[in-house]
């Protein structure tokens, strides 16, 4: 889903070592060079391993390099806990909902 220059992508199910590469390829394919912002909606994500976190980090870095913004939103309690324990909440923008993410990225 794309609104203006903002891409909203959704991840669902489990992202672990077995499918992290696929997850990465899907993200790379979805993101276009002229996207000004990418929001990754994790509402329906049930599990993410460190390999999955790494894909999110690489995406965030890539967006920073192309001068674009990046946020994740709508994390379930267990996914949020994974972000908090690993400290990813300190280096990646986490928003409560898509609407809040859009507002935050347009600031």
């Amino acid at each position: 889903m794309r609104e203006g220059g903002t891409l909203v992508a959704k991840a669902d199910g489990r992202v672990d070592g077995a499918n992290a590469r696929e997850f990465q390829e899907d993200l790379v394919t979805a993101i276009e060079a002229d996207d000004q912002a990418v929001i990754l909606d994790l509402e329906n994500l049930s599990y993410i391993s460190s390999a999955g976190l790494r894909v999110i980090l690489m995406t965030a870095r890539k967006m920073r390099e192309q001068g674009s913004k990046f946020a994740v939103c709508s994390l379930s309690a267990s996914i949020r806990e994974v972000f908090e324990i690993s400290g990813f909440d300190k280096i990646i923008s986490i928003q409560n909902s898509q609407a809040e993410a859009v507002a935050a990225l347009n600031d």
Partner: peptide
């Protein structure tokens, strides 16, 4: 209790 540190190697 956690000490608020981020995983190593990121930044």
């Amino acid at each position: 209790p956690m000490t608020g540190g981020v995983a190593l190697g990121l930044m």
